[in-house]
């Protein structure tokens, strides 16, 4: 399986994270997204006319939507990540998979603007990002009342992986996560999963690192 990948793309990181969590090996094909704009070049536009990454190729299959890629990886290697299939749970998985597109447009837009100088209305990106974060916070809080730690169930599903990266990287776009306690708990729960991997701006849980060596007398 070949992933057209950019290390700073939260959407590509969804795929890398999912693959790491379920032990799927990916062949990574680096894309010069910035500064080269290779995703808008003829080779990649022929594969994905939308001009976006990630793109996953597996034999004849070409997928250009990260949610579809997550579902594909899970269905092949770890179907428990698709949820139990009960009506309400299945619907919640779909609800948050679709919702993740709003995070990409809002928080992702703010991040591209603030970090890589992409033009756009930063005020609108941030306002829509905050609205989406509030909705996510409320959803996670209600899940907590049902005794469930993740977005669709008491175990992580593809929906969590679809929503996690842009949320965790919100501060890159100038949007603070301080007002959202349920989101912070959920983010810790995801980062504590076996096989979790990092990307720049998303750190592993500090508790999972070896104890730091403290010099005597250091403040």
């Amino acid at each position: 399986m070949k992933l057209y990948n950019y290390i700073l793309s939260p959407s590509c990181y969804k795929v890398r994270l999912m693959a790491a969590l379920i032990g799927v090996r990916l062949e990574l094909r680096p894309v010069d997204f910035h500064p080269g704009g290779e995703h808008r070049g003829p080779e990649l536009m022929a594969l994905n006319p939308a001009g976006s990454i990630p793109i996953l190729e597996d034999g004849d299959l070409v997928l250009t939507e990260s949610s579809a890629i997550l579902v594909y990886l899970a269905a092949k290697a770890a179907p428990e990540w698709l949820g139990s299939g009960k009506a309400e749970e299945a619907a919640r998985v779909q609800q948050w998979l679709s919702f993740s597109g709003r995070l990409t447009a809002s928080l992702g837009g703010a991040r591209l603007h603030e970090m890589l100088l992409r033009p756009g209305d930063i005020g609108a990106f941030q306002a829509q990002g905050i609205a989406a974060l509030r909705e996510l916070e409320a959803g996670l809080f209600e899940q907590g009342l049902r005794g469930q730690r993740f977005l669709a169930a008491d175990r992580p599903t593809v929906a969590d992986i679809a929503c996690f990266p842009y949320v965790a990287l919100a501060p890159d776009g100038g949007v603070s996560l301080d007002p959202y306690p349920a989101i912070r708990l959920w983010s810790r729960a995801i980062r504590a999963l076996d096989g979790f991997i990092e990307m720049p701006g998303i750190h592993r849980l500090h508790e999972l690192k070896p104890e730091p060596h403290i010099e005597p007398g250091e403040a």
């Binding site: 500064p35 890159d172 720049p200």
Partner: peptide, 14 residues
Amino acid sequence: LIHFQQTIFLQDRS
């Protein structure tokens, strides 16, 4: 080469 350096610099940015 670009990605290696961007990874490092983006870790510094936050």
